[in-house]
Design a protein around this nucleic acid. Structure first.
Lengths: 302, 302
DNA sequence: ACAAAAGTGTTAAACTTACACCCATGC
DNA sequence: GCATGGGTGTAAGTTTAACACTTTTGT
């Protein structure tokens, strides 16, 4: 409901405006869909099955990058916003109706797609694996959950009086059922003339389509950063009811470090509400189920 | 340096691939350039001139939105990334060589540009006003600094057991030399089926081109959020040497609240280095100049 | 002298961290 | 019994928040 009204002159201008006279890119949305997966290791009595962070990949059936794995995603249409593209594609390719879905970066490096000038909005998507996992195996798009592993491989640091350069090499590895994708991505933070810039470069790539190794890495780093900050984001990986230990495991998997249980529980206490329900595990005390405390999430400033 | 090699078959596919068969958008980069401006109020002796947050706007000389104010920005070229577009345009339109420049959102709502399907990557840009301010008055693009004022106007909150809706109305006002632009933008956070979404809508718009009122608001909110979090970002609004009071004022202007000086100084102490230089002000003790402590910025993890 | 800004010190409250400990369960 | 995960308490250390206070300057 804008107050702006076009004059006749302006209407004429618009009518005669030829947008095709300029080069235009194609626009896609690519989703890095994460979930906490339960490893299908042989579990001994009393020992909980190990959990891991998983990312959803799609095997490409066509050129380019045929038989490589790519992120779910697709081309934007004229009559939708890029967020709508992302939701539509997520639904089409995974039949998931709802998920955490948030743009985290634009990928537009020249040459990133051999078909031409194609830019991509990267989305970070989080789903509850229990709700989803079953469908993944049965669908027709060759979707597959991979276990993801990111290691900080190496780091060079040059800090001088008024410039700095910090390079970090990340090793990204996806693995499942003997299939293995891996890549090395360099992150370069430069500080010069009092401003910081960050650049990424794919140094080595084995099995990923396009620049999707970089997209996955950056999605993961953004997930990790947000987990470290407030932890709120991790709730989006949980089902409606969850135990505090499940939540803690999710935090630990994302952060890559063990947390102290008593402290973790105290920190989370305001954001969860205890329910009457219990889950029994083999050989140990049953755990209480919790749900989100929406009021606490939205208590601030108001 | 990717390991991926194309087969002959694939090369043929690529050669025959016609990207023009699909609809494509035009892509622009729009920059919300912020700086701390010194208000040109008549200042009494001993009283420091008031400072305000400023945004750089450009008066449009052509349709559409002729005579409205728009953000600096422009169309992306085929052979550059969107970050390069942003830097190029910033330089072309403001002759600034360096600035903090970071993408913060993609704007792609259908109908946002009457010329057709045009999407825009929003950038948050921060510059040191002292370095810049002089050029602003003399350049040929009708660039102009506006004082920006954002008020949280109204808020509706409905939090139920498993859904929530929080609407906030923001009043955005830009003002300078008697010229005045204003807009109302609604923010709607929805929490449903355990996931949160955020939407923005321009409810009222007076003087802004396109959806730039929304872009400015979201850029400001992102600046404010990052200031509240760590405050590191505020250094990008400072010149090389600055007093702690200048820095504190910048924080206060962005956050819209007074801070306690002793606490602020303690918090900033690790990130600044004292220099020998002093600035004298009228009628009060001279202030020490500080510069950034890069080592502290990059001390973590390594 | 005095008003304005520059800058320091002191304390209580809040939060974080680390560790020690008890509980409930199924084999 | 015992290993495993579920769950609580407590004390030390650190950070934050609030306020009182001294210093230096130009007119």
């Amino acid at each position: 409901m804008k107050n702006y009204e076009m004059s006749r002159e302006e209407k004429k201008f618009i009518k005669e405006y030829d947008i095709t006279q300029y080069d235009r890119p194609s626009l896609t949305a690519d989703m890095a869909v994460f979930a906490i997966l339960t490893a299908e290791d042989a579990t001994e009595y009393r020992k909980d099955p190990r959990k891991q962070l998983g990312v959803l990949m799609i095997r490409r059936g066509t050129f380019p990058y045929k038989d490589c794995y790519a992120l779910p995603g697709g081309f934007a249409r004229k009559d939708e916003s890029i967020e709508e593209t992302a939701f539509r594609e997520l639904k089409e390719e995974t039949s998931l109706e709802s998920a955490f879905l948030e743009p985290f970066g634009m990928f537009s490096r020249p040459g990133r797609d051999p078909r031409g000038w194609i830019i991509s909005q990267g989305f970070l998507a989080l789903v509850d694996a229990e709700k989803y996992q079953i469908r993944a195996g049965t669908d027709a798009w060759e979707a597959k959950w991979f276990y993801i592993n990111v290691e900080q491989d190496e780091m060079k640091k040059h800090v001088r009086k008024d410039s700095a350069e910090i390079c970090t090499r990340y090793r990204l590895q996806l693995e499942r059922d003997g299939e293995r994708l891996s890549a090395l991505v360099d992150e370069k933070r430069t500080f010069q003339s009092h401003h910081e810039t960050v650049e990424y470069e794919i140094v080595e790539d084995d099995g990923f389509a396009f620049d999707h190794a970089e997209i996955i890495l950056r999605a993961y780093l953004s997930l990790k950063a947000r987990t470290a900050q407030s932890g709120r984001i991790v709730f989006d990986l949980m089902p409606e009811l969850f135990t505090l230990n499940t939540l803690q495991e999710a935090h630990e998997i994302i952060l890559g470090e063990k947390l102290l249980t008593p402290n973790f529980r105290r920190k989370m206490a305001p954001f969860v509400i205890e329910t009457d329900e219990l889950v029994t595990g083999p050989g140990h005390r049953p755990a209480k189920l919790f749900r989100r405390n929406l009021e606490a999430f939205y208590a601030m400033e108001g």
